[in-house]
Simulated assay, not measured.
Amino acid sequence: MTISEPITFGGDGFDRAASLRDDSEALAALAARPGAQALPLWRGRMLLDGDRLVSLARTDAVFGPAAAMAEAVLLGRDPAGEGIWACALPDWPGAPEEMSPIEDLAHPDIAVGRFAELRGRLGGLSPRDAELAAMARALLNWHAAHRFCARCGAPSEMAQAGWRRDCPSCGGQHFPRTDPVVIMLVTQGDHLLLGRAPAWPETMFSVLAGYVEPGETAEAAVRREVAEEVGVTVGEVGYVASQPWPFPASLMLGFHARVAGRERPEPRPDPAEIAAAHWVSRQRLARIFAGEDAEIRPPLRGSIARHLMWNWLAGRLD
């Protein structure tokens, strides 16, 4: 099976420099190099110039005093061997209290780029920029939400160049979490099943998805979630591809699930999970991707949902 369309956040083999994370001398030397860079994040938004991720010198005044960079996370090294960090910026005077996901904003002390929400830029990022953005957002979100030890409640400290938090009180070590999520293209013959979550706009439909539960295989999670969400029993389940999804920190495991039997069952949506569910023919899906369907619009460019649907439409998953 050949899958030609890339998935955003799929990565391009970026050097994450894991061997340096416990080497304080090597880290200090890397940070002191003139080419050391840092990606600024603000409220989870990335600094973008069009579809290009913008980095600044690690010593840029916007990051504040040197102590502020102690909270920076080492992402890795660029092809020239220069270090790249990620650092969260605080609000600045005049920053709005609230913003919609489609708004972006310039920083008064940064000459190039605007802070923008990643979801709206998925399809335009290069593989390298997408991998860096996914790492930066997921790691900084995790640090912001896990400043206290889960074992004893004491304040924890960043360690291992930002890839761990240590508790000085009880000695506990905590690592960034990634939540496995199954996302499945459910088909029966020449039709696929699409659903809409209750909070989504009327025209926003996608393939089904759900979290893997403790003690459960990914394949079992596919069958359980489809049965729970729409009352449909699937038989064969095959893995297709995966996608890191830093909203906030999931790993989407993409599957193709086929309905058992020759009959196409009527979906029975669980209203707490699914507001509406429809079988969509391959011909209608072609019209959806062409923008010719008034009731359903395709998923975001760069998302694994779109990847699964597009490749099924092209006959690459059959």
Rank of each mutant, 00 (worst) to 15 (best):
T2K: 06
T2R: 11
T2E: 10
G10D: 00
F14W: 08
A17R: 04
S19E: 13
L20C: 08
D23M: 15
E25M: 15
A26L: 13
G35R: 06
A36F: 12
L41W: 02
G44P: 01
G44T: 06
L47G: 00
G50Y: 09
A57H: 12
A57G: 14
A57P: 11
A61C: 10
A61R: 14
F63C: 15
A68R: 14
A68C: 13
A68M: 12
A70T: 13
A70R: 15
G76M: 09
D78T: 12
P79L: 06
A80D: 11
G81E: 05
C87M: 12
A88H: 04
M99Y: 01
S100Q: 11
P101H: 03
D104H: 15
L105D: 01
H107R: 07
A111V: 09
V112N: 07
G113W: 03
L122D: 01
G124I: 01
P127Q: 02
A134M: 11
A136E: 06
A136I: 04
L139M: 13
N141D: 15
N141E: 14
H143I: 11
H143N: 13
H146I: 05
A150C: 05
R151M: 07
R151D: 10
P155I: 05
P155F: 06
E157N: 08
E157G: 07
M158W: 03
Q160L: 15
Q160W: 14
Q160T: 14
G162K: 09
R165I: 02
D166H: 10
P168C: 11
S169H: 14
S169P: 06
S169Q: 15
Q173H: 14
D179Q: 13
P180E: 11
V181D: 03
V182T: 08
G189A: 10
G189F: 08
L192P: 00
L194V: 01
P198S: 12
W200S: 09
P201G: 07
F205Y: 12
V207E: 01
L208S: 01
A209L: 05
V212E: 02
V212Q: 09
V212G: 00
E213K: 11
P214T: 02
P214H: 04
P214K: 02
E219R: 03
E219W: 00
A221W: 01
A221K: 04
V226H: 01
G231V: 03
V237I: 09
V240T: 09
V240G: 05
V240P: 04
A241M: 09
W245C: 08
A249Y: 10
S250H: 14
A257Y: 02
R258M: 10
G261E: 12
E263F: 10
E266L: 00
R268E: 07
P271A: 12
I274P: 01
A276W: 00
H278R: 12
R284Y: 05
A286C: 03
A286N: 03
R287L: 11
I288H: 05
I288F: 09
P299R: 02
L308R: 03
M309A: 06
W310F: 13
N311C: 06
A314H: 11
A314F: 09
A314D: 11
L317D: 08
D318M: 06
